[in-house]
Amino acid sequence: MPTYALHETLEVHEMATFKTVCLTKSKLMQPLVSDPALQEILRQDVQTGTRQLQELGDLLAKAMH
């Protein structure tokens, strides 16, 4: 039996793609923002986004074999 079901692996892949775009965008946008409150929201998003992507990456790595 494979580690994960095919459907869930594909969903994790979709989420990883989505989150990668989000993280990249948040990082690129950060220097363009002038409002400190918005800057703080973006900073937090970069932080959680990075951790979330690592978690998704771990799952994907296990789904490979």
């Binding site: 580690t3 994960y4 079901a5 459907h7 869930e8 594909l10 969903e11 994790v12 979709e14 989420m15 978690e55 998704l56 799952l59």
Partner: peptide, 13 residues
């Protein structure tokens, strides 16, 4: 994504 999950580990994340 959550509603397509069967493995508890994946679902928890």
């Amino acid at each position: 994504a959550v509603t397509e999950c069967a493995t508890p580990e994946v679902k928890a994340v």
